[in-house]
């Protein structure tokens, strides 16, 4: 697990590959960096950062009984 930083971007190369993103507004970048040093939090954060990078419009929630 590496935790490189490029300017205001975070790079987390977790088990599923790398993600290169800007920290979303409202998220403490320092807490993000610390989370990326933990294997489970890094995996979760990678998923959340990818999801937010692809998000369009306001946040919505999906039906629970679905994949």
């Amino acid at each position: 697990m590496s935790n490189s930083r490029l300017e205001d971007r975070l790079v987390a190369d977790g088990p599923g590959g790398a993600v290169l993103v800007h920290p979303p507004a409202g998220i403490d970048p320092e807490l993000l960096k610390r989370g990326l040093d933990h294997p489970i939090l890094a995996g979760v954060l990678r998923h959340l950062l990818e999801r937010e990078a692809q998000a369009v419009g306001r946040p919505v929630a999906y039906y629970e009984d679905s994949p």
Binding site: P24, G26, I27, D28, L31, L32, G35, L41, V44, L45, L48, R51, E52, R58, P59, V60, A61, Y62, Y63, E64
Partner: peptide
């Protein structure tokens, strides 16, 4: 975990996002 960080949720089980 995401909600504790301040991310919005995407599931109806927790969080305040519109279903």
């Amino acid at each position: 975990i995401g909600l504790l960080y301040g991310f919005p949720s995407r599931a109806e089980a927790v969080g305040l996002s519109a279903v």
